[in-house]
């Protein structure tokens, strides 16, 4: 089942670890957590999205999710890695 996220309800502004901890659903926390450490390669991200969100990078729901996260400055591609950014 594809996780449901009301993208409009995600708070604007920088992401904190406390904020990450409070996010729902678990798949969203897992995505952002996976972008910590060294970040994710595109292949790693693709695999995670297919496992948790039943869609790859090119599917409209996933693209909308990534756009919402990028708009907030939480998760974006830096060079060849996808990284979570904390404020």
């Amino acid at each position: 089942m594809v996780p449901t996220v009301d993208l409009d309800s995600l708070p604007m502004g920088p992401l904190s670890m406390a904020g990450l901890l409070a996010l729902e659903p678990a798949e969203l926390r897992r995505l952002l957590k996976s972008g910590l450490r060294r970040g994710l390669s595109s292949d790693d991200l693709q695999a995670l999205l297919e496992q948790d969100w039943q869609g790859g990078l090119d599917t409209p729901p996933v693209q909308a999710l990534l756009a919402a996260l990028q708009q907030r400055g939480w998760f974006r591609r830096d060079g060849d890695r996808w990284k979570t950014h904390l404020g």
Partner: peptide
């Protein structure tokens, strides 16, 4: 706190 949450997460 923020630091311990990060340490835990990574």
């Amino acid at each position: 706190n923020e630091e311990t949450l990060l340490s835990t997460a990574i």
